[in-house]
């Protein structure tokens, strides 16, 4: 927990400096005080764990976001076409996608990636997997989500908490 507190404090200080950009001693001192207050509040709230502080995976996550952005761009055009067509041919489908990820944060990453990709929205998550609502029938193939699931799991390193 001490390790998480230190990492959180460092990242929050970086965040403060990004927001503030004043490097006078007084303002930076205020920043350090704010960071300590925030870390203290998190300690009181009992949320100092690997889910609040997932900053160890930043590099892989950035790479994953780059890949995801391309996927989002590709999927967007199909949805735009469906929305803007006068006859609007859609075929909403429900499907269940299994979640191979071990940690909760990996599952969150996977479910949020599914929601971010236009045309598919994760509606519910339970032991079976993620219930996905797909706008078009050709998007509703569980095999299409396998690669995304693997990459999402890899992006948070899948270290068990």
């Amino acid at each position: 927990m001490v390790r998480y507190a230190i990492i959180l404090a460092l990242v929050m200080l970086l965040y403060w400096l990004t927001l503030s950009f004043y490097f006078e001693p007084l303002i930076v001192g205020f920043g350090i005080a704010s960071v300590l207050f925030a870390v203290g509040l998190c300690y009181r709230m009992r949320i100092l764990d690997s889910e609040t502080v997932p900053y160890m995976h930043t590099m892989t996550t950035i790479g994953y976001f780059g890949w995801l952005f391309l996927e989002v761009v590709k999927a967007n055009f199909a949805v735009v076409k469906a929305v803007l067509r006068p006859d609007m041919e859609i075929s909403p489908t429900l499907l269940t996608v299994p979640t191979p990820q071990k940690t909760d944060i990996g599952k969150t990453m996977f479910a949020n990636s599914i929601t971010l990709t236009p045309g598919t929205v994760s509606m519910d998550i339970d032991d079976d997997g993620i219930l996905v609502h797909a706008l078009l029938a050709e998007m509703a193939d569980p095999d299409d989500f396998v690669e995304m699931g693997q990459r999402a799991g890899f992006s948070v390193s899948e270290v068990s908490s």
Binding site: L8, M12, Y15, W16, L19, S20, Y22, I27, F30, G31, A33, S34, V35, F37, A38, V39, L41, C42, M45, I47, E51, T52, P54, D104, I105, K107, T108, A111, N112, S122, D124, I125, D126, D127
Partner: peptide, 29 residues
């Protein structure tokens, strides 16, 4: 498994960010 897993993870991540942001707003009045 709880179906509010995603909400929980994202909210936990956001809480320290919101607190630091609030104090930033305070000290940059």
């Amino acid at each position: 498994m709880n179906s509010h897993l995603i909400l929980r993870t994202v909210s936990k991540f956001l809480i320290p960010l919101i607190v630091v942001y609030g104090l930033y707003v305070h000290f940059h009045g």
